[in-house]
Write a protein that binds this DNA or RNA. Structure first.
Lengths: 194, 194
DNA sequence: TTTCAGACCGTACGGTCCGGACGGTCGACC
DNA sequence: GGTCGACCGTCCGGACCGTACGGTCTGAAA
């Protein structure tokens, strides 16, 4: 098995194919869009080029339609499945990255007008509420479908994060951040560490 | 003023210089490392090349040391300050991006062994606890220093997110995700939307 | 005074990532 | 057969990224 460092994109492709079965890049694009794509954006061009790289490494097998559109369908090889499984079983030492433009603006707003913050907070509140609605609709729609249950786990994490952000921006807009510290002290966080 | 789309990196550079005053790339690197760098990683090579780009756009002014090391120091021009301020005042329509390897592994673990999740959760709990300690030490150290108070705001957001993640992974490790939904329903989130 | 360690500081580079523009292909309906 | 909108894929230039490497300074040991 070739010794190459695979990127997150690689594993998304391998993982998607593992969950969905043999797929075309377009399938991947759509699959990603309404699952992991919600929290991590993978530009579609990548999902077209990455499978070729993985195929060159022997992790995917390629079969090309011979009818009109000549679609390429990729499937997992044994090596591919092994690579995915070993990644899934290996520890993760990196901390998540947050890439939040709003947080950036908040941080640098010392150089701007105080009222920017109010506007920013209200925008953020709207956005997170909207996203929460989307997630909760998904939970309501698929929540008790046993077959996709495992995939709902990440949705729970997403919801936790959304509510956390919503709490923060709401408190900020209300001018009372103290309430956050209090509620954290009472919360499970403290319990988990004691 | 030239019409170019500036990247987040650009604004980090402009913002850093606005908060710290004239800076060398190395200053930026260090400044970023223990502030915004906690939630958004900017590789240092960028912080060396970006100022040149901004200088070419007239947003930064460059002065070069003539002694030994010939350090380059960049400072804001009027245009630069204006660009930063207009960015700070403009609405942010993008949602944050989460880039969390652990979340990826969780999502795809249908293709792996169930016990991976336990290990993953415990790793994550350790990591988030550690990060929380770091953040809280910063709060304790700088919390009542008026001059840096505004920069503490993002720390509060960071803490909210950390605790949210910690709650999730703790619940997951304990096998009882239901507790999350309940606590969310009682929380400020609901209040904010009613 | 020379040497050396270790911190400080900067650049180069090859591959990857990125988004947007563009173009081809299909079935459905006129 | 023609046209429309959805479907599907590629291309490209520039930004990004991590890492490896190389210089420069301070200060203390030799």
């Amino acid at each position: 098995m070739p010794e190459v460092r695979l990127s997150p994109t690689s594993y998304v492709v391998l993982g998607m194919i593992a969950l969905r079965g043999p797929s075309t890049p377009y399938d991947l694009k759509r699959g990603v869009k309404h699952s992991v794509g919600y929290f991590w954006n993978f530009p579609h061009a990548q999902l077209y080029s990455e499978p070729d790289r993985l195929a060159a490494l022997g992790l995917l097998a390629l079969s090309t339609e011979d009818s009109g559109r000549r679609r390429k369908t990729y499937s997992l090889t044994e090596d591919g499945r092994a690579a995915l499984r070993s990644w899934l079983a290996s520890p993760t030492d990196e901390h998540f990255e947050m890439r939040d433009i709003a947080e950036l603006k908040l941080f640098f707003n010392e150089a701007g007008e105080p009222e920017n913050i109010t506007a920013l907070a209200h925008d953020q509140i709207r956005q997170h509420e909207k996203r929460i609605e989307v997630y909760e609709a998904m939970v309501a729609r698929f929540g008790d479908d046993e077959s996709v249950r495992p995939r709902m786990l990440t949705l729970e994490l997403g919801l936790e994060m959304e509510y956390a952000a919503l709490r923060f921006w709401t408190a900020l807009a209300g001018g009372d951040l103290g309430v956050l510290q209090e509620s954290r002290r009472e919360g499970i966080g403290v319990r988990a560490r004691s």
